[in-house]
Simulated scan of single mutants.
Amino acid sequence: MIPADATFDGTFPFAPHVTDAPGFPMHYVDEGKGEVVLCLHGEPTWGYLFRHLIRALSPTYRVVVPDHMGFGKSATPPDRSYWLQDHIDNLERFVLALDLRDITLVLHDFGGPMGMGLAARHPDRIKRVISANGPVSFGQADQVDRLLANAATAPWFQWILKAQADGSLETVLGQLGYTILSTLKLNGFEDHSIITDAWLAAYGAPFATPADCLGAIGWTKGFATGMHRFEVPDAAAIRAIRTRPALAIWGMADRTLQARYFLPLFRDLFPAAAVHELPGVGHYCLEDAPDLIARLIADFLRQS
């Protein structure tokens, strides 16, 4: 776990906040005032991914960015499971503890199904949905088929299945603090010009020891063993969320969550919504094109 006051040479200068509402110390950023923009990261990142967006939006909005269990500055409890439903449970407790309402979700990677799980349970609290290379799985009939078809061609998912089969998954991911750059690159990280010692430290520090890697191991192992379960929205939740303003921003160089499989999920749920396909931008779109994405999101918030 990263020290709460770590700023990584000033690149993450936000005041730390911690809540025990999910049953462990969960760190979050809470910057600005106004409508709530809730940013949800995925694997193997943390709130650092949203640092540029926090700066861009916090003068006008309240930007809330939790680090999920086992990631970033949050604790990595050794006695918890790290399946999707556990993360949804944690997020629900977090949102209720802070009483967040009129939420704009910003979803990246597994933050997608996590945020949509929250939307299934509390559609009344969701005002807008923004997918930034984050799947909006929300009861679509073909969501599992698309996930499996994507996994059949995505290098990251192919490695997960191979490593689980040969018994190396936990050993390899237990060294994630040392291999973080190669992991990010495998998934689709394109802009090498931003790599600095501080940047590498920010993404590697959460995984200093094998015990610190339980979150990353748990998420990948959950996929390999079929333990993740999408939240199933009821008909009322689907009707409500379909009416919300929505935006998709997708880095088309994403090798892990390929647009051809996941943008149709978004378009099925939000057929009238704008979709921005960004050529040359990878899975970590908020690293590859932070200024463009911040501008697209700010414009969307103003217009909706």
Rank of each mutant, 00 (worst) to 15 (best):
M1C: 11
I2N: 08
D5R: 15
T7C: 05
G10N: 05
T11I: 11
D20R: 13
P25N: 13
M26P: 00
Y28S: 05
G32A: 11
P44D: 11
W46E: 08
I54S: 03
I54Q: 05
A56H: 12
S58H: 11
V63Q: 11
V65G: 08
V65D: 09
D67F: 14
S81E: 14
W83P: 02
W83T: 14
L84I: 08
L84N: 11
D89V: 13
D89P: 01
N90R: 10
N90K: 07
N90M: 09
V95R: 05
L100R: 08
L107Y: 09
H108G: 01
G115M: 04
R121F: 04
R121Q: 10
A132F: 04
N133I: 03
G134Y: 12
Q140F: 05
T153R: 07
P155D: 06
W156G: 01
I160W: 05
A163W: 14
L169D: 04
T171Y: 00
G174W: 00
T179I: 07
I180G: 06
L181F: 13
L186S: 09
N187V: 01
D191E: 14
I195V: 15
T196D: 03
A198D: 04
Y203W: 15
G204R: 11
P206S: 08
P210E: 03
A211Y: 01
D212H: 09
K221S: 13
G222H: 07
G222V: 09
G226D: 05
M227R: 14
H228I: 00
H228F: 12
R229S: 05
E231L: 10
I238N: 06
T243A: 15
D254F: 07
F270W: 06
A272L: 11
V275I: 15
V275P: 09
H276M: 06
P279Y: 03
P279V: 10
G280S: 06
H283G: 01
A289W: 01
I293N: 11
A294N: 13
A294D: 12
